[in-house]
């Protein structure tokens, strides 16, 4: 049990975010109405995706420095989990957009930036599968992963903030004050973020162990 405490913590934090996300007080804002609660579930997907991609980047750099195949494996699986979370974030964001902005997709720098980011990571998986030699694969994928992470920061972190965007937290100075996140909502939101990051790490951990089992069999 001692080794598993972080998994339990992640589950506990997500349950907190489900219960208090639905029952807690939120601001009454026009257009948003009750959909403001989607913030507790949609935004953590992206936060945890970035966290997992950062983990993937770190293990890629470790692999490039030390050449251990294990760090390459972890980098790959973390990126896969991150991609899963990004897909969920994209779907939920699209539904949210339909009922607040009026369309499933709008030509917005934030939305197009996330689409480009996901394509960049798809290319990472394609690149991996196209190289047979494991050493070559690891090095190429590691170098590409550094590029992919930088592009992600540019496309979802910087470019949307340079122009105006429908998406909150963009256009001018970002920061959380723009989210209209009041003190009631903050703890629920942050527990969801930490909870989903831990959940993502757990899923990655399972995937890595399965791959290790297959490799050693």
């Amino acid at each position: 049990m001692k080794r598993h405490w972080w998994k339990a913590l992640g589950v506990f934090l997500i349950i907190i975010s489900i219960v208090f996300g639905l029952l807690g007080e939120v601001q009454a804002l026009p257009i948003l109405n009750e959909t403001i609660r989607v913030l507790y579930y949609h935004v953590p997907m992206w936060f945890s995706m970035v966290a997992l991609m950062l983990g993937s980047l770190i293990f890629s750099i470790l692999h490039l420095r030390q050449g251990s195949p294990k760090s390459d494996l972890i980098a790959n699986e973390a990126a896969k989990t991150g991609f899963l979370l990004a897909t969920l974030g994209l779907i939920t964001g699209s539904i949210w957009a339909r009922f607040t902005w009026g369309a499933f997709w709008v030509n917005d720098p934030k939305l197009n930036g996330t689409a480009v980011t996901m394509l960049i990571y798809l290319a990472y998986f394609v690149l991996r599968n196209s190289v047979e030699d494991p050493q070559k694969k690891g090095r190429l994928a590691g170098v590409y992963n550094i590029f992919a992470f930088v592009m992600m920061i540019v496309f979802i972190g910087i470019l949307p903030r340079m122009t105006d965007s429908l998406h909150p937290g963009n256009g001018g100075n970002p920061g959380f004050n723009k989210y209209d996140l009041d003190s009631n909502m903050r703890p629920v939101f942050y527990s969801a973020v930490v909870g989903w990051i831990l959940m993502g790490v757990w899923i990655t951990n399972l995937r890595v162990r399965v791959k290790n089992l297959i490799a050693n069999a």
Binding site: I14, I15, I18, V19, L22
Partner: peptide, 12 residues
């Protein structure tokens, strides 16, 4: 609303 909360927690 508690029913919804319960169902979501059970699924999770």
């Amino acid at each position: 609303i508690y029913v919804v909360v319960l169902i979501m927690v059970i699924i999770f």
